[in-house]
Simulated assay, not measured.
Amino acid sequence: MESMKDYEKELERSFRTINEGDIVSGAVVAVTDEEVTLDLNYYAPGIIKIENLSNDPDFHAKEELQPGDIIEATVVRTDDGHGNIELSKKEANEVLAWDKLREMMEQQTVVTVRIKESVPSGVVAFLEGIRAFIPASQLSADYVEDTDAWIGKDVRVVVITVDPEKNKLVLSGKVVARQEREEERNHRIAMLVPGSVVEGTVESIMPYGAFINIGNGISGLVHISQISQKRISSVHEVLKEGQKVKAKILNTNDGKVSLSMKALEDIMEKPQEEEEAEAIEYSSNETAGTSLGDLLSRFKL
Results as ranks from 00 to 15, higher is better:
53 L>F: 01
287 T>N: 03
160 I>F: 01
190 A>D: 07
221 L>H: 07
10 E>I: 08
189 I>R: 01
183 E>Y: 03
37 T>L: 14
8 E>S: 13
42 Y>R: 00
81 G>N: 05
53 L>M: 07
46 G>V: 07
89 K>Q: 14
39 D>Q: 02
80 D>L: 02
296 L>I: 12
63 E>A: 13
282 Y>L: 10
233 S>R: 03
34 E>G: 07
61 A>P: 11
114 R>D: 07
45 P>S: 08
11 L>P: 01
285 N>K: 15
290 T>E: 11
55 N>Y: 14
185 R>E: 11
235 V>N: 00
93 N>P: 03
279 A>Q: 14
83 G>T: 04
291 S>I: 01
125 A>T: 10
84 N>Y: 12
156 R>V: 08
187 H>Q: 14
150 W>I: 03
90 K>N: 08
169 L>G: 00
253 N>Q: 15
9 K>D: 12
201 T>F: 01
174 K>M: 06
58 D>G: 06
288 A>K: 07
99 D>T: 13
167 N>C: 05
79 D>M: 11
10 E>G: 02
112 T>V: 09
67 P>R: 12
27 A>E: 13
154 D>C: 04
245 V>I: 09
48 I>C: 09
142 D>M: 12
226 Q>Y: 08
118 S>W: 10
144 V>R: 04
173 G>R: 03
271 P>T: 05
208 Y>G: 01
171 L>K: 00
169 L>R: 03
6 D>W: 08
61 A>T: 01
233 S>F: 03
